[in-house]
Design a protein around this nucleic acid. Structure first.
Lengths: 215, 215
DNA sequence: TAGACTATGGGTATTTATACCTATTAAAAT
DNA sequence: ATTTTAATAGGTATAAATACCCATAGTCTA
Protein backbone atom coordinates (compact mmCIF):
# COMPACT_ATOMS: atom_id res chain seq x y z
CA UNK A 1 0.00 0.00 0.00
CA UNK A 2 1.46 3.23 -1.13
CA UNK A 3 1.21 6.15 1.23
CA UNK A 4 0.75 9.60 -0.21
CA UNK A 5 2.69 12.21 1.66
CA UNK A 6 1.22 15.59 2.54
CA UNK A 7 2.84 18.25 0.41
CA UNK A 8 3.68 21.45 2.20
CA UNK A 9 4.56 24.93 0.99
CA UNK A 10 6.42 27.02 3.54
CA UNK A 11 6.36 30.80 3.33
CA UNK A 12 8.55 32.86 5.60
CA UNK A 13 10.90 35.75 5.06
CA UNK A 14 13.36 34.29 7.52
CA UNK A 15 15.31 31.64 5.69
CA UNK A 16 16.47 30.14 8.94
CA UNK A 17 12.92 29.49 10.01
CA UNK A 18 12.25 27.73 6.71
CA UNK A 19 15.37 25.62 7.07
CA UNK A 20 14.41 24.68 10.60
CA UNK A 21 10.85 23.80 9.69
CA UNK A 22 11.97 21.69 6.75
CA UNK A 23 14.23 19.62 8.95
CA UNK A 24 11.44 19.24 11.50
CA UNK A 25 8.79 18.23 9.01
CA UNK A 26 10.38 16.20 6.24
CA UNK A 27 9.68 12.56 6.91
CA UNK A 28 7.23 9.80 6.19
CA UNK A 29 4.12 11.89 6.64
CA UNK A 30 4.99 15.35 5.39
CA UNK A 31 7.27 16.71 2.74
CA UNK A 32 8.13 20.32 2.10
CA UNK A 33 8.03 20.57 -1.66
CA UNK A 34 8.38 24.35 -2.06
CA UNK A 35 9.34 27.41 -0.15
CA UNK A 36 8.80 31.12 -0.61
CA UNK A 37 10.10 34.22 1.14
CA UNK A 38 6.97 36.30 0.78
CA UNK A 39 3.29 36.00 -0.06
CA UNK A 40 3.72 36.99 -3.67
CA UNK A 41 6.23 34.23 -4.34
CA UNK A 42 3.92 31.79 -2.63
CA UNK A 43 0.85 32.67 -4.66
CA UNK A 44 2.91 32.50 -7.84
CA UNK A 45 4.03 28.99 -6.96
CA UNK A 46 0.53 27.86 -6.09
CA UNK A 47 -1.00 29.28 -9.25
CA UNK A 48 1.47 27.32 -11.34
CA UNK A 49 0.46 23.94 -9.93
CA UNK A 50 -2.37 24.34 -7.46
CA UNK A 51 -3.22 20.67 -7.14
CA UNK A 52 0.12 19.51 -5.87
CA UNK A 53 -0.10 21.53 -2.65
CA UNK A 54 -2.01 20.20 0.33
CA UNK A 55 -0.99 22.58 3.04
CA UNK A 56 0.40 26.06 3.37
CA UNK A 57 2.51 26.95 6.38
CA UNK A 58 2.98 30.69 6.45
CA UNK A 59 4.38 33.52 8.52
CA UNK A 60 2.36 36.70 8.83
CA UNK A 61 4.63 39.68 8.47
CA UNK A 62 6.37 39.47 5.13
CA UNK A 63 7.27 41.95 2.42
CA UNK A 64 5.18 42.41 -0.74
CA UNK A 65 2.24 40.29 0.39
CA UNK A 66 1.46 39.49 4.01
CA UNK A 67 0.53 36.07 5.33
CA UNK A 68 -3.06 37.08 6.00
CA UNK A 69 -3.52 38.44 2.49
CA UNK A 70 -1.96 35.28 1.13
CA UNK A 71 -4.33 33.21 3.24
CA UNK A 72 -7.36 35.08 1.93
CA UNK A 73 -6.30 34.54 -1.66
CA UNK A 74 -5.54 30.88 -1.17
CA UNK A 75 -8.81 30.20 0.62
CA UNK A 76 -10.87 31.91 -2.05
CA UNK A 77 -9.09 30.51 -5.10
CA UNK A 78 -7.81 27.16 -3.86
CA UNK A 79 -10.01 26.09 -0.96
CA UNK A 80 -8.56 22.58 -1.00
CA UNK A 81 -5.33 23.95 0.49
CA UNK A 82 -5.24 24.02 4.29
CA UNK A 83 -3.52 26.98 5.90
CA UNK A 84 -1.61 27.07 9.15
CA UNK A 85 -0.39 30.47 10.23
CA UNK A 86 2.81 30.53 12.19
CA UNK A 87 3.53 33.83 13.85
CA UNK A 88 6.35 35.15 15.93
CA UNK A 89 4.36 37.90 17.50
CA UNK A 90 1.80 37.93 20.29
CA UNK A 91 -0.25 40.29 18.23
CA UNK A 92 -3.97 39.89 18.69
CA UNK A 93 -4.73 42.04 15.70
CA UNK A 94 -2.82 39.55 13.60
CA UNK A 95 -4.70 36.63 15.10
CA UNK A 96 -7.99 38.35 14.46
CA UNK A 97 -7.06 39.01 10.85
CA UNK A 98 -5.93 35.44 10.38
CA UNK A 99 -9.24 34.14 11.67
CA UNK A 100 -11.12 36.48 9.36
CA UNK A 101 -8.92 35.23 6.53
CA UNK A 102 -10.22 31.73 7.28
CA UNK A 103 -6.94 30.23 8.40
CA UNK A 104 -7.31 26.68 9.66
CA UNK A 105 -4.91 27.23 12.49
CA UNK A 106 -2.70 29.73 14.21
CA UNK A 107 0.25 28.85 16.38
CA UNK A 108 3.03 30.91 17.85
CA UNK A 109 6.64 30.21 17.07
CA UNK A 110 7.40 29.83 20.74
CA UNK A 111 5.50 26.60 20.67
CA UNK A 112 7.75 23.60 20.05
CA UNK A 113 7.99 20.94 17.42
CA UNK A 114 5.46 18.81 19.28
CA UNK A 115 2.75 21.41 19.12
CA UNK A 116 3.51 22.10 15.48
CA UNK A 117 3.04 18.44 14.61
CA UNK A 118 -0.12 18.30 16.67
CA UNK A 119 -1.51 21.31 14.84
CA UNK A 120 -0.66 19.80 11.47
CA UNK A 121 -2.28 16.54 12.46
CA UNK A 122 -5.49 18.23 13.50
CA UNK A 123 -5.63 20.40 10.43
CA UNK A 124 -4.87 17.68 7.90
CA UNK A 125 -7.71 15.70 9.45
CA UNK A 126 -10.11 18.48 8.66
CA UNK A 127 -9.97 20.23 11.98
CA UNK A 128 -8.56 23.49 13.25
CA UNK A 129 -5.87 24.34 15.75
CA UNK A 130 -5.21 27.51 17.68
CA UNK A 131 -2.51 27.83 20.30
CA UNK A 132 -3.83 28.01 23.81
CA UNK A 133 -1.43 30.89 24.33
CA UNK A 134 -3.29 33.16 22.02
CA UNK A 135 -6.62 33.02 23.82
CA UNK A 136 -5.67 35.36 26.68
CA UNK A 137 -3.81 37.51 24.19
CA UNK A 138 -6.85 37.98 22.05
CA UNK A 139 -8.95 38.65 25.10
CA UNK A 140 -6.50 41.24 26.46
CA UNK A 141 -6.14 42.98 23.16
CA UNK A 142 -9.86 43.02 22.57
CA UNK A 143 -10.30 44.78 25.87
CA UNK A 144 -7.68 47.35 24.93
CA UNK A 145 -9.11 47.89 21.50
CA UNK A 146 -12.56 48.20 23.00
CA UNK A 147 -11.48 50.93 25.37
CA UNK A 148 -9.74 52.73 22.55
CA UNK A 149 -12.70 52.47 20.22
CA UNK A 150 -15.04 53.65 22.94
CA UNK A 151 -12.85 56.64 23.56
CA UNK A 152 -12.87 57.60 19.91
CA UNK A 153 -16.58 56.97 19.53
CA UNK A 154 -17.66 59.37 22.21
CA UNK A 155 -16.50 62.09 19.84
CA UNK A 156 -18.88 62.98 17.05
CA UNK A 157 -17.55 63.02 13.47
CA UNK A 158 -17.51 66.79 13.45
CA UNK A 159 -15.65 66.87 16.75
CA UNK A 160 -13.06 64.44 15.43
CA UNK A 161 -12.66 66.61 12.36
CA UNK A 162 -12.12 69.71 14.42
CA UNK A 163 -9.80 67.98 16.84
CA UNK A 164 -7.76 66.79 13.90
CA UNK A 165 -7.38 70.35 12.65
CA UNK A 166 -6.46 71.60 16.11
CA UNK A 167 -3.66 69.06 16.22
CA UNK A 168 -2.47 70.36 12.86
CA UNK A 169 -1.85 73.72 14.56
CA UNK A 170 -4.74 75.63 13.04
CA UNK A 171 -6.44 78.32 15.14
CA UNK A 172 -10.17 78.40 15.68
CA UNK A 173 -10.48 81.13 13.09
CA UNK A 174 -8.58 79.12 10.49
CA UNK A 175 -10.63 76.04 11.22
CA UNK A 176 -13.81 78.07 10.83
CA UNK A 177 -12.68 79.26 7.41
CA UNK A 178 -11.80 75.76 6.29
CA UNK A 179 -15.13 74.31 7.35
CA UNK A 180 -17.22 77.31 6.29
CA UNK A 181 -18.66 77.76 9.76
CA UNK A 182 -18.46 80.43 12.43
CA UNK A 183 -15.50 80.75 14.76
CA UNK A 184 -18.02 80.59 17.59
CA UNK A 185 -19.11 77.16 16.49
CA UNK A 186 -15.52 75.96 16.54
CA UNK A 187 -15.05 77.38 20.01
CA UNK A 188 -18.18 75.64 21.20
CA UNK A 189 -16.85 72.37 19.82
CA UNK A 190 -13.63 73.01 21.72
CA UNK A 191 -15.59 73.36 24.94
CA UNK A 192 -17.40 70.12 24.29
CA UNK A 193 -14.13 68.41 23.48
CA UNK A 194 -12.69 69.46 26.83
CA UNK A 195 -15.54 67.72 28.60
CA UNK A 196 -15.41 64.60 26.47
CA UNK A 197 -11.64 64.30 26.54
CA UNK A 198 -11.56 65.16 30.22
CA UNK A 199 -8.93 67.84 29.92
CA UNK A 200 -8.72 71.56 30.47
CA UNK A 201 -6.75 72.98 27.58
CA UNK A 202 -5.72 72.48 23.99
CA UNK A 203 -2.58 70.78 25.22
CA UNK A 204 -4.74 68.04 26.69
CA UNK A 205 -6.65 67.70 23.44
CA UNK A 206 -3.45 67.19 21.49
CA UNK A 207 -2.24 64.54 23.90
CA UNK A 208 -5.61 62.83 23.76
CA UNK A 209 -5.62 62.83 19.99
CA UNK A 210 -2.09 61.48 19.68
CA UNK A 211 -2.67 58.84 22.35
CA UNK A 212 -5.72 57.55 20.53
CA UNK A 213 -4.20 57.65 17.10
CA UNK A 214 -6.50 60.21 15.61
CA UNK A 215 -5.34 61.11 12.14
CA UNK B 1 41.99 9.73 16.35
CA UNK B 2 39.09 10.80 18.42
CA UNK B 3 37.36 13.99 17.42
CA UNK B 4 35.98 16.22 20.13
CA UNK B 5 32.69 17.78 19.21
CA UNK B 6 31.92 21.41 19.92
CA UNK B 7 29.39 21.61 22.70
CA UNK B 8 26.70 24.18 22.23
CA UNK B 9 24.19 25.78 24.58
CA UNK B 10 21.17 27.30 22.86
CA UNK B 11 19.15 30.00 24.57
CA UNK B 12 15.93 31.21 23.01
CA UNK B 13 12.46 31.81 24.37
CA UNK B 14 10.94 30.36 21.22
CA UNK B 15 11.05 26.60 21.59
CA UNK B 16 10.51 26.17 17.88
CA UNK B 17 13.68 28.06 17.10
CA UNK B 18 15.60 25.85 19.49
CA UNK B 19 14.16 22.72 17.93
CA UNK B 20 15.03 23.96 14.46
CA UNK B 21 18.56 24.91 15.40
CA UNK B 22 19.18 21.57 17.09
CA UNK B 23 18.21 19.71 13.97
CA UNK B 24 20.40 21.95 11.87
CA UNK B 25 23.44 21.70 14.09
CA UNK B 26 23.59 18.26 15.60
CA UNK B 27 26.10 16.22 13.66
CA UNK B 28 29.75 15.28 13.55
CA UNK B 29 31.09 18.72 14.35
CA UNK B 30 28.61 20.25 16.73
CA UNK B 31 26.32 18.94 19.37
CA UNK B 32 23.69 20.85 21.28
CA UNK B 33 24.09 19.61 24.82
CA UNK B 34 21.76 22.00 26.62
CA UNK B 35 19.03 24.47 25.97
CA UNK B 36 17.45 27.32 27.94
CA UNK B 37 14.46 29.55 27.42
CA UNK B 38 15.92 32.66 28.97
CA UNK B 39 19.20 34.14 30.09
CA UNK B 40 18.75 33.20 33.70
CA UNK B 41 18.30 29.53 32.89
CA UNK B 42 21.36 29.69 30.67
CA UNK B 43 23.62 31.24 33.26
CA UNK B 44 22.43 28.70 35.83
CA UNK B 45 23.33 25.87 33.50
CA UNK B 46 26.75 27.31 32.71
CA UNK B 47 27.60 27.94 36.35
CA UNK B 48 26.91 24.30 37.16
CA UNK B 49 29.44 22.94 34.66
CA UNK B 50 31.25 25.80 32.94
CA UNK B 51 33.95 23.72 31.31
CA UNK B 52 31.67 21.54 29.25
CA UNK B 53 30.34 24.39 27.17
CA UNK B 54 32.30 25.68 24.19
CA UNK B 55 29.81 27.93 22.53
CA UNK B 56 26.69 29.84 23.42
CA UNK B 57 24.09 30.52 20.76
CA UNK B 58 21.60 33.04 22.10
CA UNK B 59 18.64 35.15 21.16
CA UNK B 60 18.50 38.72 22.42
CA UNK B 61 15.02 39.48 23.63
CA UNK B 62 14.11 37.05 26.33
CA UNK B 63 12.34 37.27 29.68
CA UNK B 64 14.19 37.52 33.00
CA UNK B 65 17.64 38.04 31.51
CA UNK B 66 18.28 39.32 28.01
CA UNK B 67 20.77 37.89 25.58
CA UNK B 68 23.09 40.86 25.84
CA UNK B 69 23.13 40.71 29.63
CA UNK B 70 23.79 37.01 29.40
CA UNK B 71 26.61 37.64 26.97
CA UNK B 72 28.23 40.15 29.30
CA UNK B 73 28.10 37.75 32.22
CA UNK B 74 29.46 34.85 30.23
CA UNK B 75 32.30 36.86 28.77
CA UNK B 76 33.38 38.21 32.14
CA UNK B 77 33.05 34.99 34.12
CA UNK B 78 33.71 32.32 31.50
CA UNK B 79 35.78 33.92 28.75
CA UNK B 80 36.52 30.53 27.18
CA UNK B 81 32.93 30.33 25.94
CA UNK B 82 32.35 31.83 22.52
CA UNK B 83 29.10 33.70 21.99
CA UNK B 84 27.07 34.00 18.83
CA UNK B 85 24.04 36.25 19.04
CA UNK B 86 21.14 35.29 16.84
CA UNK B 87 18.51 37.96 16.55
CA UNK B 88 15.19 38.18 14.79
CA UNK B 89 15.09 41.92 14.73
CA UNK B 90 16.81 44.48 12.55
CA UNK B 91 17.44 46.52 15.65
CA UNK B 92 20.67 48.49 15.57
CA UNK B 93 20.48 49.27 19.24
CA UNK B 94 20.55 45.54 19.89
CA UNK B 95 23.54 45.06 17.60
CA UNK B 96 25.38 47.87 19.33
CA UNK B 97 24.69 46.40 22.73
CA UNK B 98 25.81 42.98 21.58
CA UNK B 99 29.09 44.39 20.33
CA UNK B 100 29.63 46.22 23.60
CA UNK B 101 28.86 42.95 25.40
CA UNK B 102 31.77 41.43 23.48
CA UNK B 103 29.77 38.96 21.46
CA UNK B 104 31.91 37.07 18.95
CA UNK B 105 29.26 37.27 16.29
CA UNK B 106 25.85 38.55 15.42
CA UNK B 107 23.65 37.15 12.70
CA UNK B 108 20.04 37.71 11.81
CA UNK B 109 17.56 34.89 11.78
CA UNK B 110 16.67 35.64 8.21
CA UNK B 111 20.05 34.31 7.23
CA UNK B 112 19.94 30.65 6.30
CA UNK B 113 21.56 27.50 7.60
CA UNK B 114 24.59 28.09 5.41
CA UNK B 115 25.40 31.42 6.95
CA UNK B 116 24.84 30.06 10.42
CA UNK B 117 27.37 27.29 9.83
CA UNK B 118 29.79 29.76 8.31
CA UNK B 119 29.48 32.00 11.37
CA UNK B 120 30.02 29.08 13.70
CA UNK B 121 33.06 27.96 11.73
CA UNK B 122 34.63 31.38 11.88
CA UNK B 123 33.92 31.84 15.55
CA UNK B 124 35.11 28.42 16.67
CA UNK B 125 38.37 29.17 14.84
CA UNK B 126 38.89 32.22 16.98
CA UNK B 127 37.38 34.75 14.64
CA UNK B 128 34.26 36.85 14.59
CA UNK B 129 31.27 36.99 12.30
CA UNK B 130 28.74 39.72 11.74
CA UNK B 131 26.02 39.50 9.11
CA UNK B 132 26.55 41.78 6.17
CA UNK B 133 22.91 42.75 6.53
CA UNK B 134 23.45 44.53 9.78
CA UNK B 135 26.02 47.03 8.54
CA UNK B 136 23.56 49.31 6.75
CA UNK B 137 21.12 48.82 9.60
CA UNK B 138 23.58 50.06 12.15
CA UNK B 139 24.46 52.96 9.93
CA UNK B 140 20.84 53.92 9.39
CA UNK B 141 19.93 53.68 13.02
CA UNK B 142 22.94 55.67 14.08
CA UNK B 143 21.83 58.45 11.78
CA UNK B 144 18.33 58.38 13.25
CA UNK B 145 19.57 58.35 16.81
CA UNK B 146 21.95 61.16 15.99
CA UNK B 147 19.16 63.33 14.62
CA UNK B 148 17.02 62.64 17.66
CA UNK B 149 19.81 63.41 20.10
CA UNK B 150 20.61 66.59 18.26
CA UNK B 151 17.01 67.65 18.40
CA UNK B 152 16.85 67.20 22.14
CA UNK B 153 20.18 68.83 22.74
CA UNK B 154 19.35 72.10 21.03
CA UNK B 155 17.03 72.71 23.96
CA UNK B 156 18.64 73.99 27.12
CA UNK B 157 17.90 72.19 30.41
CA UNK B 158 15.62 75.01 31.49
CA UNK B 159 13.80 74.92 28.19
CA UNK B 160 13.28 71.19 28.51
CA UNK B 161 11.96 71.72 32.01
CA UNK B 162 9.49 74.34 30.87
CA UNK B 163 8.44 72.33 27.85
CA UNK B 164 7.79 69.40 30.11
CA UNK B 165 5.50 71.51 32.30
CA UNK B 166 3.71 72.89 29.25
CA UNK B 167 2.96 69.35 28.15
CA UNK B 168 1.55 68.69 31.62
CA UNK B 169 -1.09 71.34 30.89
CA UNK B 170 0.22 74.06 33.14
CA UNK B 171 -0.21 77.70 32.09
CA UNK B 172 2.70 80.11 31.95
CA UNK B 173 1.58 81.61 35.23
CA UNK B 174 1.48 78.24 36.96
CA UNK B 175 4.88 77.33 35.58
CA UNK B 176 6.28 80.63 36.83
CA UNK B 177 4.98 79.90 40.32
CA UNK B 178 6.43 76.42 40.31
CA UNK B 179 9.86 77.58 39.22
CA UNK B 180 9.86 80.79 41.27
CA UNK B 181 10.41 82.95 38.23
CA UNK B 182 8.43 85.61 36.42
CA UNK B 183 5.64 84.76 34.01
CA UNK B 184 7.47 86.93 31.50
CA UNK B 185 10.46 84.67 31.69
CA UNK B 186 8.33 81.67 30.98
CA UNK B 187 6.78 83.44 28.01
CA UNK B 188 10.21 84.31 26.69
CA UNK B 189 11.21 80.67 26.95
CA UNK B 190 8.08 79.79 25.01
CA UNK B 191 9.14 82.12 22.22
CA UNK B 192 12.59 80.58 22.11
CA UNK B 193 11.06 77.12 22.08
CA UNK B 194 8.97 78.02 19.03
CA UNK B 195 12.11 78.89 17.13
CA UNK B 196 14.07 75.86 18.28
CA UNK B 197 11.21 73.44 17.74
CA UNK B 198 10.28 75.06 14.47
CA UNK B 199 6.62 75.47 15.26
CA UNK B 200 4.20 78.28 15.77
CA UNK B 201 2.05 77.39 18.75
CA UNK B 202 1.86 75.38 21.92
CA UNK B 203 0.23 72.59 19.95
CA UNK B 204 3.45 72.22 17.98
CA UNK B 205 5.49 72.16 21.17
CA UNK B 206 3.41 69.33 22.58
CA UNK B 207 3.78 67.31 19.40
CA UNK B 208 7.53 67.96 19.36
CA UNK B 209 7.88 66.90 22.97
CA UNK B 210 5.89 63.69 22.52
CA UNK B 211 7.66 62.83 19.28
CA UNK B 212 11.05 63.14 20.93
CA UNK B 213 10.11 61.31 24.06
CA UNK B 214 10.60 64.19 26.45
CA UNK B 215 9.44 63.17 29.91
C1' DT C 1 -44.32 62.45 20.78
C1' DA C 2 -40.94 63.90 24.18
C1' DG C 3 -36.20 63.86 25.19
C1' DA C 4 -31.33 63.58 23.82
C1' DC C 5 -27.78 64.65 20.90
C1' DT C 6 -25.45 67.19 17.10
C1' DA C 7 -24.30 71.11 14.66
C1' DT C 8 -24.95 75.54 14.19
C1' DG C 9 -24.31 80.64 15.84
C1' DG C 10 -24.47 84.76 18.97
C1' DG C 11 -23.19 87.73 23.32
C1' DT C 12 -19.89 88.98 26.84
C1' DA C 13 -16.01 88.86 29.64
C1' DT C 14 -11.76 87.19 31.26
C1' DT C 15 -7.64 84.69 30.86
C1' DT C 16 -3.90 83.07 28.24
C1' DA C 17 -0.86 83.09 24.58
C1' DT C 18 1.82 85.30 21.12
C1' DA C 19 4.80 88.96 18.93
C1' DC C 20 7.59 92.38 19.09
C1' DC C 21 10.96 95.34 21.82
C1' DT C 22 14.65 96.11 25.42
C1' DA C 23 17.87 94.90 29.26
C1' DT C 24 20.92 92.68 33.04
C1' DT C 25 23.63 89.00 35.01
C1' DA C 26 26.40 84.85 35.12
C1' DA C 27 28.52 81.30 32.88
C1' DA C 28 30.72 79.25 29.06
C1' DA C 29 33.26 79.34 25.00
C1' DT C 30 36.69 81.43 21.76
C1' DA D 1 39.75 89.41 27.19
C1' DT D 2 35.94 89.33 24.34
C1' DT D 3 31.97 87.14 22.50
C1' DT D 4 28.15 84.11 22.98
C1' DT D 5 24.64 81.87 25.30
C1' DA D 6 21.34 80.93 28.99
C1' DA D 7 18.38 82.68 32.21
C1' DT D 8 16.32 86.29 34.04
C1' DA D 9 12.64 90.27 33.70
C1' DG D 10 10.03 94.22 32.01
C1' DG D 11 6.87 96.98 28.47
C1' DT D 12 3.24 97.05 25.08
C1' DA D 13 0.02 95.31 22.11
C1' DT D 14 -2.70 92.08 19.68
C1' DA D 15 -4.49 87.51 18.84
C1' DA D 16 -6.30 83.47 20.63
C1' DA D 17 -8.39 80.68 23.85
C1' DT D 18 -11.47 79.83 27.59
C1' DA D 19 -15.81 80.22 30.43
C1' DC D 20 -20.03 81.19 30.94
C1' DC D 21 -24.71 82.49 29.07
C1' DC D 22 -28.22 81.81 25.32
C1' DA D 23 -30.95 80.03 21.00
C1' DT D 24 -32.50 77.11 16.79
C1' DA D 25 -32.96 73.36 13.50
C1' DG D 26 -32.36 68.57 12.45
C1' DT D 27 -31.85 63.72 13.58
C1' DC D 28 -32.39 59.88 16.20
C1' DT D 29 -34.30 57.24 19.78
C1' DA D 30 -37.02 55.58 23.75
Amino acid sequence: MEIEKINILITDDHQMVIDGLKMMLDGDVYQVISEANNGQEAIDLIQTQPEQYHLLLTDISMPLLSGTELCKMVKSQFPHIQVLVLSMYNNAQAVKEAVLAEADGYILKNSGRTELLQALHRITNGGTYFSQDIVPIIYGQYQKQKVKDEKLNVLSPREREILSLIVKEFTSEEIAEKLFISKKTVDNHRQNLFVKCNCKSTVGLVKYALANGLE
